[in-house]
Design a protein around this nucleic acid. Structure first.
Length: 873
DNA sequence: AGCTACCGGGG
DNA sequence: GTGTACGGTAGCT
C-alpha cells in the first residue's frame, strides 16, 4: 500500500487495451507512476421505442470495423467488448440505456459514428467524454488529493522512483499535497522587429525561479542551495557579479541546460505567463531545429502542443500552469486592469512591476560586439524578474485553482485552461454520474448557429431622476439568479413538464406595473433579430412553467453550491486567519460557480442549454425587482434607482425602521431561498443625466457611505486616457457635492481650477494624456495626437511600437489637435493649450454633475458674469 | 449597417 | 486524444 497525490493523468495502449497512467508524488515526496489496467472505455446508446433490445445488443457485439491504423504491422480493429442494460435519467426522465464498452478509447468515436446511423438507435451519448476525465470522475479520484494504491511493482518507461501496477486505488479523503514543487520559467528571444518568428530568431536567455530549496533536487547541475532557486542561462558572455547567471556556448546548449534543470529540479508544476502560446511552443520549435530531444515528460515524451488554434502546451507528468490563461478566463472579470499584460496584472495583484528595461532594445544590445556588460545584465535581471512575478502570481491564484480542482475533480492542467461555462459543464458532468443522469451531447454545428441567433430580454434597470439625494437605503436580492434557479426549479428537465401544465404557475411574461418603464439591456437590443423566419413561427411569449413535483438536476446542484457556501461563510466567522485563506478561496469558487449557471443555460455551446430556462431566470428577476419597486411605491417610498437585483429608496419622510419593516414584508412572501438583503444606509447619493436634457443615466452614480468613503460607479473619470487635472477635478467635485451638499462650492472649485489652467499654474504632469499605441505607427489610417507624437519620437530615435504608452500634452496654436500634441520634454508649462483642457477635459468631467444644480457651461466659463449673477441673487 | 478578419498574451 | 478557444472590435463593403 502506497499513499500518493495524483498530479497528472494520461493513458497508453498496451496489447490492445488502454492503460491509465497516473503520475503523482508519494507522501514521502517521491515521484510515482500508478498504472491502472482496470478501466474500460464506454458510452451509452438510447434506442427508439419499439426496438428489440436483446437482438440489437447481440448485433452490437458482432461489429468489427477495420481501423485506419495498423498496430505493429497487424490489422487493427474497432469492436464492442460487452454491453449492459442500465436505468438512467435523461433530462429528468427515466430511460433504459445500453452501456456499450469498446476495446479502445479511440474506438469510441468510430463506434459512435457507426451506431448513430442505425435505424433503431435514437441517440448516442457520452461518447465525447475524454477517457482520462471519465476515469477520474468514475473512480472518484480527485487530483492533488491523498490516494492509496494497492498493487505490485510495475514496469513502464518513466522518470519516476516508483512504478506500481494497481490492483485497487482509492481516494482517502480531501487532504491535498502540501508543498508542491513549483518552478517558474521565462524566455527572452532575439526579436529585431515586432513580429515573432520562432523558426528564424533564437532564444537568447531563459530564467527559472522556484521556491523549493535544493535538498531533494539533486546536485548535478549545481542547483542553488538556500531558500530559493533562481537561474538565468544565456549564451552571450560578459562579466557579472550575479552568480545565478550561467553562461553556455550556444542556443543549443541553452536548450540542453533547460532540459537538465527541469530534470534536476523535478517540478510538480512548471509555471509560465502565456507559456501555452509563447514560451513552450518557442522552446519546442528551437529544439526541433537543433534536433534536440526535448523529452522532459515523465514518460520521456516531448512537449505536446494543442492542435489547431487551441494554443496549449502539455508536459506529461508535470503540471504546466499558464497563469495568463487563468487570469484572462476566470480572474480577469474581477480585476480593474484593461489588459492582461504581466506588468499590469502583477501590479494589480502583487503591487510589483516588471523590471524597467525596454525589451525592444535587447536585439540591438545582443548584436553589439563591444557590448557593455551591464547593458546585457539588465536584460538578465528583467528575465529573472518575469519568472519571479510569475511564481508569485502562481502562489496567489493556486488556492483558487486548487479549489476548482477539488470541486470539479479534473486535473490542475485542465482546470487552469477552462472558461466559466466549461467549469459549470464539467461540474455537471461529474454530478451527473452521482445523480445517475445521462450527459447531453454538445450541439452540432447547425444547432450552434441557430442558438447564436436567439436572444432574449435581460435585466431591468430603472432610469434615475438626476439629482443629489440624502439618506438613501439600499436593498438587494442575495444571489438573485442562483436563488431564482433554485426556488423556481429552473432546469432543462423540469421545463414545461406534462404534469404541472394546469397549475397555472407560469413564468411571468409581462411587467407588473407600467409606472416603471422597462428598458432592454443594450446587449439584448443589439442582438435582437425582430424578423422571424417560417421555421421559427411567431411563438410570441410562449407560456412556460417548471415542474413542481420533481426537483430538477440544475436546481439540485446549484442549491448544493449555495448551501456549501453558506456553511463555509459560517465557518469563517470562527476560523483563524490562516485557515480562512483557504475557506475564502473555497467560498469564492462556489460563488463563481453558482453565478455562472444562468449564463451557462443561455450559452450556445452548452450541453444543458435551455434558452427558455435562461429567459425564465431574467423574467423572474425582473418580476421580483419590480415587485419590490411596486410595493415600495405603494407604501409611498420614493424609489431612486434599481438595477437587476438592487433597489435604492429615498428615506426622506420615512424612517429606516419603516424601510426595514418593508423589506421584511417582502421577504415573508418570497419563495425558497430567495432573500432581499439590507445593504446599508448611505448619507448621500448622486445621479446624473446621460446627455444634456435627457433622463438619468443608467449604471452611473456616486454614493457616500457612513464612513465618509465615496463609491463611484460608471463615471468615466477612471479612464486612462484622461489627464490628471480632469480626473482629480471630477473626484474633488463629487466629494464636495456628496459630503457638503453644495453645488455652489463645487462650482467655485471648478472656476478656480479653470482660472489656474488659464494662468498656466497647472504643472505639465497634470495635463499629460496617456494613450497606448495599439499597432505599428505606419498602420494607422486616422492619425490621432498620440500617433503623431509617436512618429516624432521615432524620428528622434526613440523606439516606439505597439504597446508603447505615449504621453503628450496639447499645446496652443491654430493647427489641428494632432499637430499640437507635444512630448512633455519638448515644452514648458506656458505652452499647454488652456482652452483645450477646459473644453475637452475639465468640462466633460464635471458638467453633468453641476447640471444637477442648474449650472451650465456658461456659469463656469465666464467669471465676471457669474459673479454679477451671484451678487444679483 | 452588417459582415469578416484578426487580435489578445508573448519578444 | 471518447475535444478543437472566444469574445471583441477595427475595417471593409
Amino acid at each position: 500500500m502506497i499513499q500518493f497525490y495524483p498530479l497528472d493523468v494520461t493513458y497508453k495502449e498496451h496489447e490492445g487495451k488502454a492503460v491509465i497512467y497516473l503520475f503523482g508524488r508519494t507522501s514521502s515526496g517521491e515521484q510515482i507512476l500508478v498504472l491502472d489496467r482496470n478501466f474500460e472505455p464506454y458510452f451509452y446508446v438510447l434506442l427508439k421505442q419499439n426496438a428489440d433490445v436483446d437482438q440489437l445488443r447481440n448485433n452490437f457485439k458482432k461489429i468489427k470495423i477495420e481501423s485506419d491504423k495498423e498496430t505493429a504491422g497487424a490489422k487493427d480493429f474497432v469492436f464492442v467488448t460487452k454491453t449492459e442494460i442500465v436505468e438512467k435519467l435523461y433530462f429528468g426522465k427515466k430511460v433504459q440505456a445500453i452501456r456499450v464498452y469498446s476495446n479502445l478509447p479511440r474506438s469510441v468515436p468510430v463506434l459512435r459514428d457507426f451506431l448513430k446511423q442505425q435505424p433503431d438507435v435514437s441517440v448516442v451519448l457520452e461518447a465525447d467524454i475524454q477517457f482520462t476525465r471519465r476515469y477520474l470522475i468514475d473512480k472518484k479520484i480527485t487530483p492533488l488529493s491523498l490516494c492509496e494504491v494497492d498493487g505490485e511493482e510495475g514496469s513502464a518507461r518513466a522518470k519516476v522512483k516508483y512504478i506500481i501496477d494497481a490492483k485497487s486505488i482509492k481516494q482517502l479523503g480531501d487532504q491535498i499535497i502540501e508543498k508542491p514543487r513549483m518552478l517558474a520559467f521565462d524566455i527572452e528571444t532575439y526579436s529585431p522587429d515586432k513580429r515573432i518568428i520562432p523558426e528564424q530568431n533564437p532564444i537568447l536567455m531563459i530564467s527559472f525561479y522556484g521556491d523549493f530549496d535544493a535538498s531533494g533536487a539533486g546536485g548535478t547541475s549545481g542547483v542553488d542551495s538556500g531558500s530559493g532557486f533562481k537561474k538565468v542561462i544565456t549564451w552571450k558572455k560578459f562579466k557579472t557579479d550575479f552568480d545565478y547567471i550561467e553562461f553556455v556556448n550556444s542556443e543549443a546548449d541553452l536548450l540542453e541546460r533547460f532540459k537538465e534543470v527541469v530534470e534536476d529540479y523535478k517540478p510538480d508544476f512548471m509555471v509560465g505567463y502565456f507559456s501555452d502560446g509563447f514560451d513552450l511552443p518557442y522552446i519546442k520549435t528551437r529544439s526541433e531545429k537543433y534536433k534536440i530531444k526535448l523529452d522532459i515528460g515523465l514518460d520521456h515524451s516531448n512537449i505536446e502542443l494543442g492542435k489547431g488554434t487551441k494554443n496549449t502546451a502539455q508536459i506529461t507528468g508535470i503540471i504546466h500552469l499558464d497563469i495568463f490563461k487563468y487570469v484572462s478566463k476566470i480572474l480577469g472579470k474581477t480585476l480593474e486592469t484593461e489588459s492582461y499584460r504581466l506588468d499590469l496584472v502583477a501590479n494589480e495583484l502583487l503591487g510589483e512591476r516588471k523590471y524597467d528595461v525596454d525589451i525592444g532594445e535587447l536585439h540591438k544590445v545582443w548584436d553589439n560586439k563591444d557590448v557593455s556588460p551591464d547593458e546585457i545584465e539588465k536584460f538578465c535581471i528583467y528575465n529573472l524578474q518575469d519568472s519571479v512575478l510569475t511564481l508569485k502570481l502562481a502562489r496567489k491564484v493556486l488556492p483558487n485553482i486548487i479549489e476548482l480542482v477539488k470541486i470539479i475533480g479534473l486535473t490542475v492542467y485542465d482546470v487552469n485552461r477552462m472558461s466559466s461555462s466549461q467549469i459549470v459543464e464539467w461540474y455537471l458532468i461529474n454530478k451527473a454520474k452521482e445523480y445517475n443522469q445521462l450527459v447531453p451531447n454538445r450541439p452540432p454545428y447547425t444547432e450552434t448557429k441557430e442558438r447564436l441567433e436567439q436572444s432574449f430580454e435581460g435585466a431591468f434597470v430603472f432610469e434615475p431622476k438626476p439629482g443629489l439625494y440624502k439618506e438613501v437605503a439600499i436593498f438587494d436580492y442575495r444571489s438573485l439568479y442562483p436563488s431564482i434557479i433554485s426556488s423556481h426549479n429552473i432546469s432543462p428537465g423540469t421545463l414545461d413538464c406534462s404534469c404541472c401544465e394546469d397549475d397555472g404557475d407560469y413564468v411571468p411574461t409581462s411587467f407588473l406595473n407600467e409606472v416603471v418603464r422597462s428598458e432592454k439591456s443594450e446587449k439584448t437590443e443589439k442582438n435582437e433579430k425582430p424578423e422571424r423566419t417560417e421555421k421559427e413561427p411567431a411563438q410570441k411569449k410562449a407560456k412556460h412553467w417548471f415542474c413542481k413535483k420533481r426537483k430538477g438536476f440544475i436546481p439540485i446542484i446549484i442549491e448544493e453550491l449555495i448551501k456549501r457556501r453558506m456553511r463555509i461563510k459560517e465557518m469563517m466567522k470562527s476560523g483563524d486567519a490562516e485557515k480562512n485563506v483557504f475557506l475564502d478561496a473555497r467560498q469564492q469558487t462556489l460563488k463563481l460557480m453558482a453565478n455562472s449557471f444562468y449564463g451557462y443555460l443561455g450559452f450556445f455551446g452548452a450541453r444543458w442549454y435551455s434558452i427558455e430556462s435562461a429567459e425564465a431566470v431574467t423574467a423572474y428577476g425582473r418580476h421580483y425587482i419590480l415587485k419590490v419597486i411596486n410595493e415600495a411605491q405603494k407604501r409611498k417610498f420614493v424609489v431612486l434607482y434599481s438595477d437587476t437585483d438592487s433597489i435604492f429608496l429615498h428615506l426622506e419622510g420615512k424612517t429606516l425602521k419603516e424601510a426595514l419593516d418593508f423589506s421584511e414584508e417582502i421577504n415573508v412572501e418570497l419563495p425558497g431561498i430567495m432573500e432581499l438583503e439590507f445593504e446599508g444606509v448611505f448619507p448621500a447619493a448622486l445621479f446624473v443625466s446621460a446627455k444634456e436634457g435627457s433622463y438619468g443615466a443608467k449604471k452611473k452614480y456616486a454614493l457616500l457611505d457612513k464612513k465618509g468613503n465615496i463609491k463611484v460607479k460608471g463615471f468615466e473619470s477612471v479612464r486612462r486616457n484622461w489627464s490628471l487635472i480632469a480626473k482629480d477635478l471630477q473626484e474633488k467635485v463629487l466629494g464636495i457635492v456628496l459630503r457638503e451638499g453644495s453645488g455652489k462650492k463645487a462650482l467655485e472649485y471648478v472656476k478656480s481650477a479653470i482660472t489656474d489652467l488659464k494662468d498656466h499654474k497647472v504643472s505639465l504632469d497634470k495635463v499629460q494624456i496617456f494613450t497606448q499605441l495599439q499597432k505599428e505607427i505606419e498602420d494607422y489610417d486616422s492619425v490621432g495626437p498620440h500617433v503623431r507624437v509617436a512618429m516624432r519620437m521615432k524620428a528622434k530615435g526613440i523606439d516606439v511600437g505597439p504597446g508603447s504608452i505615449i504621453r503628450y500634452v496639447i499645446t496652443s496654436g491654430k493647427e489641428r489637435i494632432g499637430e499640437r500634441a507635444r512630448l512633455v520634454e519638448e515644452i514648458s508649462q506656458k505652452d499647454y493649450d488652456a482652452d483645450y483642457y477646459i473644453n475637452n477635459q475639465v468640462i466633460p468631467a464635471v458638467d453633468k454633475i453641476l447640471a444637477i444644480f442648474g449650472y451650465s457651461k456658461d456659469d463656469f466659463l465666464s467669471e465676471k458674469k457669474q459673479s454679477k449673477l451671484d451678487g444679483f441673487f
